[in-house]
Each structure stands twice: as C-alpha cells, then as structure tokens.
Nucleic acid binder design. Structure first.
Length: 673
DNA sequence: AATCCTGGAGTTTTT
DNA sequence: CTCCAGGATT
C-alpha cells in the first residue's frame, strides 16, 4: 500500500494545526503516522530529533520506528523519538532528575514491587487488613492517573475508608522517595507536575519536541493527555490517531472521552476519518458496523472495503464447552485440508485466559500446532525477578524492595528477626536498609554473627558495584552470578534439572539483553556520559529492548489469545468462542453496566478477521464446578440477519423469533432442549 | 523451610 | 471445580 487514499493523504499533509485522525480498524493508520513522520522530516525540514511519536507498547514503538526509518531517505531519521509514553517519561525524569531530587540510578517499581511496599505500609498500623490491598493499589493508581496528589485525596475523601487509603497513598509516595524510586504511574505524573511548575524546563522540552504524534489516542488516560497538552502548548503541532470504537482499556484508566475533549481543547482541530478498510471482506465489515451502531457515538464512522463480499459469518451453537472446543479443532482441520489454508491463518479469540485450557487440550488431541500468546510473562519469572533485583540494588542501593528480595537468594542465613532489627533501625533513622549496614549503632541490635553476614553481603555488593563502573559492566554481572552460584541455586530450587537449565537460559538471555541495551545506548551518541548500566536497568524494567525471538512468524501455528491481546493484529480466519451472556459480555461488566466496552471488545474481535469469521457458543457450560445452561450473547442479536448463518439454533434464525415480541433467544432455546 | 490446610474468588493488562 | 494466598503446622 504505497499509494495513499485521499483521506490518508489529507491526514499526512495537514500540519497547520492539531489533527485528529479517526482511524477505523484496518484503515492503515500506521502508514499514516509513519508517512507523516517522513513528510515532516523531508518536506517540512523538521529535523528528526525534534519529532516524537508516542505509543503504548514497546512493540508498537519498535515497529513504527522501523517503518519510519525505511521511508526516510538516508540517515535523516536519526534522532527520531518513537517511544512509549512511559519511556518518554523515564527520559524526562532522568534528564531532570537533579531538579526533581532523584539520585541517578533511581529504581522503577513495577506493580509487584508497589504491591509489596503497600503491604508493608498497611501492616505497620492495622488500619486496613490485607484484603484491601488490591483495592488500595488500584485507588492509588487511579488517583495518580487523575493527577490527584495525596493532600488532595485526603481533603476530598468521602468516607473514613477513603481517608485511610489517602493516608496510605501519602506514606506510599514518601516511601518511594526514600527508596529513590518511582512507580509506573509516576513516570507520567512526575513529568506533568514538573512541567506545570517549572516553565523553564517545560520550554526546554517544547523546544526539543516540535511535532508530536500519538498512536492509539483513545487509550490515553488523563495524565497522559495532559502531558501531551503540555508538550504541544499552543503550537498545535499535534497529530493523534485513534478509534473510539476500539477503546477497550477503560478498566485500566483509559479515557476514551479524551477524543471528544480534544475538540473542546483545540477548537481548530481538524478531524479526518479513515473509513476505507484494507483488511476484511464487506460482509465482515457490515457485521462489525451493525454491531457497533448499538453504541452511542461522538464521531460517526462506517467501514467499507473493496475486498469483495466474502462468506457469511457463521454462528455455531454447540452442546457444551467440550463440543465447542472440539468443533473449533475439527473446523480448523477440515478447512485446512479442503482449502489449503495454513495453521497460522487461524486465530481463536476468547474473553478470558481460562478459556484457553480446553482449547489447548483439544488442539493437542488433534495434533494441531498452536501458540498461546499472553499468560505469564518473561519478567514474572522468579529467576528474572531475582536477577533484576540484584541489578536494581547495584544501581540504587536504597531500593529496599530489591534488597529484601535477594538478601536470602541464595541463602545467606539471615533470618527474619535480623531483618526486622535492621528494618527498625533504618526506619528510625529514615535511611535505607543498605545504608543502615554502614552504621555502628547496629552492633547493639543485632548479634555479632548475623551482623557479620549482613556486612559481608554489603561489602560484596559494593565490590560488584565498583566492578560495574568499569569498562565491561556486563562481565561484572556475569562474575557476580558466578560468585553466588546462581545456577546451583536454580538447580536446588527447580523441579528438574531440565527446568533449571531452562531458567538459567532465561537468565543468560536477560544478561545478553543488558549487554545489547548498553551497547545500543552508547552508540546513540545523543545520551553522552550517563549511558551506562543505570539506563540499561531502567529500560529493562520497562521491558524495553527485549526482542523476543518472533518464532511465530516462522512456524505454522494456530494463534490463541484473548480479545484484548488481539487488538492491532489480523488473521485470515478468526474464531470467536464463548459468545454467551456472562462471558461476553462478561458478568462483571453486566453488573457494572459496562456493556458498551464489551461491545467494542466484540467489535475488535470481528474486525481482526480478513476473510472468514466464525463465532461459537456452548449451550451448557461448567462453571464453578456445576454445569449450567447458558444464554447466547446479546451481541449475537445485534448482528445483521442477512450476513449470518446460524447453526444449532433449531429451524429458524433467532432474529425472526425475536421479532415477534417478548420472546428472547434464551427461552426460545429452552423449547428445543 | 517445606508442607498442609483453609477460605475465597473466579476479566481483560502494559508500562 | 481449581487456583491462589496466607496462615498454621511440622
């Protein structure tokens, strides 16, 4: 698609003011962004280092950067910023860390670290029991995303409960400061606060970023939008691309209304719709349009394509979940044989990860190769968390969380009572655990033997840190892993030696990534002296620079993933399973009256399909131990009758019966059972 | 430190 | 039912 259509062209060429590109599914939005970047560099003479494009995932950023560099002649794209919001935030904090009061090498707490910190804080005074842990964490994150500082949270708290959470919020932020650490939300929030209070710094960044592009704009939260506004200022040098119908992350803070807000905040906003779809058949788009028409819209949009009418959408009702999974497996086998499709042409999409279990079983039984994406990530693995904790402690000795994670990994015979004494001493003096180890006052608190062990550890870590300051920091890390015989520790703590080897491989992979990141950073002339292990560790926490071998492209496997994970992808033949009330829409969304987002999720699933789409459901499903009747998803009722083939619903299509009046699909089905 | 027991929940997930 | 966390027990 080297030739842009008129709408796309308009979106690329319009640079006289803020621009909102309403990019429907499969309408070539990435082409628009990358072509616009090329246009800005080559035709508008804006140097690449003054252009920034923001995405939500590292993967998207990587792809976009690659595509943009290919479009731009020679090396003119050098210095271009294509990064995630969080990565940009990290860069800002790093560059401005002095005025923000952070020491270099500050830590980034992931959700798990944040959780364990909160747990500690809540234990100390039994205000709240640990049941509330998730609630508290969520609330604090919400506050941060909404730019509400602890003091404000305290003053607007509606109930004693909220008041208590606000207090924890306050202490949580103080603790982060003490640990020289920030959490993920801070990566956006802190730059925003900095820009709001420091005009000089803001101006510097505004001069740096002369044109800003934002991808998946409907997924921005309030603080992210504010960051965008601050950077853009009144210059209007902004292009955002998004699709309100594909907003499926409201539950984690996304504010799809940011799309409409844009129009208010920038009255001169130019809105450009991309409605031509280059992915799917007309049938599929008709079904998608018909379904999403049931949602209210600020911007109307109807997808169309020139890909031909295509096959009708099939909706298959199976006896139970087992039959459903079985049916999907046999469908894949027969279609592959009859039509010469590849396994990789098929995707099976579901609402919840647990739905993959049965499917996985059936695919195995039929010897169908498959790949499940999502699930436990590389960084959730204990060996990776362990090594990361070592890295973090080396880079930031005040990171108590990292300290506690590794102090006994491997065993150093340092018990809880010793650590409690150390912790007490440290918190009285408002210093970190590691810093406390240097103090003489400890002798009265901790038995000599234990203190000796602690100090031996501290001494050793300091040595490793010094070694890391040399030419070959990664060698120092390798040596450190040797010192502690981490491989031996893994063998002791793994089910089999095979598992241990696998885990050690992961560790080596991490170390290699560290090396790569350091190499890459020092070749990016931009950074200068500070491009050392500190930056590399921070980037790794953000999961940047982790190029997992994309074996999926090479091998012929059926793709299994959640509907959420499928956003942005496309497949020739798509199965959407579990099209039932309580599953899709999910039970909780029904309770919270969140049907619209579930509808969008369904819309996302439908628009993944290029050529055929098959929806399945089970008449009965085992849940929570007992078999129960299911109700077909209300979204099935919202599909256009003429484009759908029904199977397993009895003689008549369900719509005809529905049209009669009160009769629902549910009680109709009861007649046939 | 390892294991067992009990209770409660049971979506989606990136950074 | 099945999985987890957390606590108690050994």
């Amino acid at each position: 698609m080297t030739q842009l259509n008129p709408r796309q062209k308009e979106a690329v060429l319009y640079i006289d003011g803020p621009c909102l590109v309403l990019a429907g599914a499969g309408s070539g939005k990435t082409s628009v962004i990358t072509r616009k970047i090329a246009y800005l560099i080559e035709q508008c003479d804006i140097p690449a280092r003054h252009i920034a494009a923001l995405t939500f995932t590292n993967k998207a950023a990587r792809e976009m950067k690659e595509r943009a560099s290919k479009l731009v002649k020679g090396s003119a794209s050098r210095g271009l910023t294509v990064s995630t919001f969080h990565n940009l935030g990290l860069n800002i904090i790093r560059r401005e860390h002095k005025s923000l009061g952070f020491k270099p090498g500050f830590s980034i707490f992931d959700s798990e670290d944040a959780r364990s910190l909160l747990k500690d804080l809540m234990m100390k005074d039994g205000d709240l029991d640990s049941d509330h842990l998730d609630l508290v964490q969520h609330q604090i994150s919400n506050w941060k995303n909404d730019l509400i500082i602890p003091a404000r949270a305290l003053s607007v708290a509606q109930s004693p409960g909220e008041q208590a959470i606000a207090l924890i919020y306050q202490r949580y932020n103080q603790a982060l400061r003490a640990y020289n650490a920030v959490d993920f939300d801070d990566l956006i929030l802190i730059p925003v606060e900095l820009f709001q209070t420091n005009a000089e710094v803001l101006q510097r960044w505004q001069r740096k970023i002369r044109y800003l592009l934002v991808d998946e704009y409907q997924d921005t939260n309030s603080s992210q939008y504010l960051l965008v506004q601050l950077i853009v200022g009144n210059r209007g040098a902004l292009t955002v691309v998004g699709d309100d119908d594909q907003s499926i992350y409201a539950w984690r803070g996304a504010r799809p209304e940011n799309m409409s807000l844009l129009k208010q905040d920038y009255p001169s906003l130019r809105v450009i719709k991309l409605e031509q779809n280059y992915r799917s058949t007309s049938r599929i788009l008709r079904v998608a349009n018909h379904l999403i028409a049931n949602n209210p819209h600020d911007f109307d949009k109807a997808l169309w394509s020139e890909m031909g009418l295509g096959d009708p959408i099939r909706v298959l009702r199976c006896k139970n979940e087992d039959a459903e999974a079985e049916r999907v497996a046999t469908e894949i086998l027969t279609q592959r044989l009859r039509k010469q499709y590849k396994f990789r042409d098929f995707a099976i999409l579901y609402r919840g990860n647990h739905q993959a279990r049965l499917l996985e079983m059936k695919l195995q039984q039929h010897q169908i190769p498959y790949k499940i994406s999502g699930g436990s990530s590389f960084f959730a693995k204990t060996e990776i968390k362990d090594v990361m904790a070592y890295l973090r402690l080396i880079v930031n000795p005040d990171d108590d969380n990292a300290f506690l994670r590794i102090i006994n990994t491997p065993r150093r015979q340092i018990g809880t009572s010793t650590l409690e004494a150390l912790g007490g001493y440290a918190s009285e003096r408002h210093i970190s655990l590691f810093a406390a180890l240097d103090e003489l006052g400890l002798q009265s608190r901790i038995p000599e033997k234990n203190l000796e062990r602690l100090q031996r550890f501290a001494h050793w870590i300091k040595q490793v840190t010094r070694n890391c300051g040399g030419d070959r920091p990664v060698d120092a890390i390798r040596e450190m892993l040797n010192d502690i015989d981490y491989e031996g520790w893994l063998h002791q703590n793994s089910a089999s030696s095979k598992a241990a080897e696998k885990r050690m491989e992961n560790v080596f992979y991490l170390v290699e990534s560290l090396q790569k990141t350091i190499d890459k950073n020092s070749s990016d002339e931009d950074e200068g002296e500070e491009s050392r292990i500190e930056d590399a560790v921070a980037k790794l926490v953000l999961r940047d620079m982790m190029e997992r071998q994309e074996e999926e492209d090479l091998s012929d496997q059926v793709q299994l993933m959640t509907l959420h994970a499928s956003k942005g992808l496309e497949f020739p033949h798509v199965f959407m399973v579990g099209m039932e009330e309580e599953l899709l829409p999910h039970r909780n969304s029904i309770e919270d009256n969140n049907i619209e987002e579930e509808r969008r999720l369904t819309y996302v699933g439908i628009t993944r399909a290029q050529r055929t789409l098959t929806m399945t459901l089970a008449g009965k499903r085992k849940q929570f131990g007992e078999m129960s009747e299911t109700t077909p998803s209300r979204f099935l009722d919202e599909l256009p009758v003429d484009d759908v083939e029904w199977e397993g619903f009895g003689e008549q299509s369900p719509e005809k019966n529905l049209a009669k009046g009160e009769e629902t699909l549910a009680n109709l089905l009861n007649l046939f059972d």
